[in-house]
Write a protein that binds this DNA or RNA. Structure first.
Lengths: 214, 214, 214, 214
DNA sequence: TATGAATGAGCGTTCATTCAT
DNA sequence: CATGAATGAACGCTCATTCAT
């Protein structure tokens, strides 16, 4: 009954365990794929009992949500400053692609796990991750960092300043996000895939694609 | 007596059942995702016993292979003639994107199922679909139609004729394939997604991206 | 509607098919063991449809009974004359062991299949082969050849003539039958096992064991 | 707090359950035969869910190995001291047969289960129990108790001391093992079979058979 | 805080058998 | 005479989850 309750209602031990489990889960999902990443195997990798995982994350669904958040938060310090340092929309776009590529390159497991979850995860009711998130964030739209990490913002800026041609922003966003995910996909097939090189090509592609003919 | 010696050694009943099961499987994979498309659920949807599915496709792996082949073959008459009708590389590229979009639009379930399998399927040994296919086609590389449906061919043609700038072909291929898959993804989230509109934008994007400044 | 009904109510074709299926079944049981010898695999080996097997032998149980009878009948021409040619009980015993060994040697599949069925087969109600047979032959005790192939007869003869010492006949029978089955067992583990050599040793063993001290 | 750190890292509950399951499995195999002893039926007999059996023995193969070990270990205290107490080879041989008979008599289910497994078990790859064991003990040959329980040792001793005549040891071993297994077989057919009486006859048989004429 | 124990639903697969043709 | 089609029960096994301690 020591007074070891930390702010946020979590003890030091609890935070450590959660971090450890999340780390192992990310590794396992990246290596074996989401469907093969059972709670039992995650626990085994973490060296704890299976029930411990469910003690901290009462449901597999909640564990996945935590994973996603963890991965997203890991990308913020890499991407947000890089984008913010640029002033022009095309500068921000280049920074977005390059810093995302850098994140994929330096955090391969994080990126692989995210893609696995993104493509394979379904809730008990059959919903995909984005559908679940869309529901929970319907009333509370993303702000701050989350907004900064949405290419939409950049494309809208560029169209406002006249740097970019008139294109449907959400379509360009889809194309860009998918193209970047391609880096993760190739990296998952071939650990030696040249992610920075691929992203440099993406910079060229979307530079040309957003500016259009003079 | 005619039903028993059809070409391919398959009776009328057999072909009908196989078609029906494949159809139900495609629907279910498209709706619920690959991991949720168990043999039992496929059978239930088809209104037959689980063992009937395994009577026609002795293994789930074989069922998946059949699905993939079926979907691929459905795309051929839509895409191949459209691409072949164009002479220039940029014409072929536009036709590739537009006809692929048309296929996604008119064969939504096929496209969704293929994407699901592409991203979620793993063989018993953990191999992905493309890794399995890469193994089986190692000695017998694709020819004819299959080659025509690989954007690589188009990009190489364009670089030879000088229509396209010098870019790493495999990177451009990855970006294009991913961008097109984006149409499927969006369509799975929102059945009313404007696939042709999106693809028209892709036409512009890759037109600009492949030509570039001199 | 040709008048091809043979005596016994079986057509030529029918007998041929039955022989063929029984032969394949014996081979398969010998090779893969009884539990692995499913009707489907037997049919496959015979090159007929699974239902054909059940058309001729309406039940797997009946097929097994036929197999056993077939194997037994195959042993008769090898063993019975050899035993009958001897006059003394110890002569008949030697002939029994040697001819049984010869049968095992020349009909390895038959012997292996019999042993597999003997040790592994259970009817739907859990009964073993001998228990089933004991039931069906309760009222109709074996005669003629069957009696000749039961070592009991030989042992009783030897005790009557004074050639053999006084031992409990059924115990000696059990020991002998088991010892001979050992040849099959060893042969199943090692195809090159020296069955005749082993049986020659059995001849010595049971010669000594039945005569006892002078 | 004491239950959790027993020797072997097993809790009291775990050992109890394992013992219970192994006991039920031995009973069931003895009664219904190995093929009929499914995990589900073993669980049913133990009054637990099917998954509980797999919780303690992650694979049926492992359960079988445990069964075999359990049965073997149960025979050691009965047979080894009895054999060790004799000095001559023929004394050891008599003790071997009699103590084995005693074990079969007092541990009928154990003996039946062992014989069932011995004759019917096949691993996933089709290997029999002895073939599996031969593989695993190839580098680490059995010593001490295991060697004492192999009749080969006794026969070799007797030939060295001149008590036994010159016979091929492995053939005599096969015959003896098979003859003793006959006791189990008869006992399984008839619960009232006189195992000690049969073994006493075996003592006579192999006494005569190993000594022979000069 | 942490865990061992237990469960039930579901998985892919095999199999003997039935039946209409 | 022969078969293709279909079935239901059972199999070994995995998994997320519950619960008492």
């Amino acid at each position: 009954m020591r007074t070891n309750d930390e702010p946020g209602g979590q003890t030091f031990t609890e935070r450590a365990r959660r971090t450890q489990i999340v780390g192992c889960a990310i590794e396992l999902v990246a290596e074996a794929g989401y469907p093969a990443a059972s709670i039992g195997k995650i626990a085994e990798r973490a060296g704890v009992a299976k029930s411990v995982v469910l003690y901290y994350f009462s449901t597999k669904e909640k564990l996945v949500h935590t994973l996603v958040m963890e991965i997203f938060l890991a990308s913020v310090p890499v991407m947000v400053p890089a984008i913010a340092a640029e002033e022009t929309a095309s500068g921000k776009l280049r920074a977005y692609i390059r810093s995302n590529g850098e994140f994929i390159h330096t955090h391969r497991d994080h990126a692989l796990a995210m893609l696995e979850i993104w493509t394979s995860y379904r809730s008990a009711t059959g919903q995909r991750l984005d559908e679940e998130m869309a529901e929970s964030t319907a009333r509370q739209p993303p702000q701050g960092d989350l907004a900064a990490l949405d290419p939409t913002t950049i494309f809208e800026l560029g169209q406002r300043t006249g740097e970019f041609r008139a294109f449907p922003v959400h379509h360009m966003t889809t194309a860009l996000r998918q193209a970047i995910d391609g880096a993760v996909l190739q990296s998952s097939r071939d650990a030696g895939f040249d992610v920075p090189g691929y992203c440099e090509e993406l910079v060229t592609i979307f530079d040309l694609a957003t500016k259009g003919e003079p």
